[in-house]
Design a protein around this nucleic acid. Structure first.
Length: 126
DNA sequence: CTTCTAACA
DNA sequence: TGTTAGTA
């Protein structure tokens, strides 16, 4: 699930391809960049290189524009989305995973069994 | 031929 | 946003 996100963020598409994929003009794509809505990679002789994520981002921008939002508004939405996912990752790092719970439960059972002696034929608890 | 920056009859 | 000029 990490390999896929890596490919998705690989910047390899020239602006011409992005134009066809998004139906946006080069002018618009470059303009949105000046508005901090996208940050294309730069390579070769200063040519812009976009990733599939950038394409999705541009598609979202087009939708928000249709909904009447301006560049600043869209930028705020992206920033908010960024904060949301950062918050989620932080929570996930502090939340007990299923494996953690299983391990804790296992230790508790060993302790109880150690005091009283468990039958070797007791059903496997994992 | 494609892309880039800058500028506007 | 479109378009065009002069480059790289």
């Amino acid at each position: 699930m990490k390999e896929k996100e890596l490919r998705r963020s690989l910047a390899v598409l020239p602006i011409g391809t992005v134009m066809k994929l998004t139906n946006l003009t080069a002018r618009q794509i470059r303009y949105y960049e000046t508005q901090e809505l996208i940050k294309p990679e730069r390579s070769d002789g200063n040519r812009r290189l976009y990733s599939l994520n950038d394409v999705d981002r541009l598609l979202e921008i087009k939708d928000y524009l249709d909904e009447g939002l301006n560049m600043a508004g869209i930028r705020e939405i992206f920033m908010q989305k960024q904060l949301d996912q950062e918050h989620r990752k932080e929570q996930q790092s502090k939340t007990l995973t299923d494996d953690d719970v299983r391990e804790i439960l296992h230790d508790e059972i060993l302790r109880a069994g150690g005091l009283q002696g468990m039958s070797p034929t007791s059903p496997k608890l994992r």
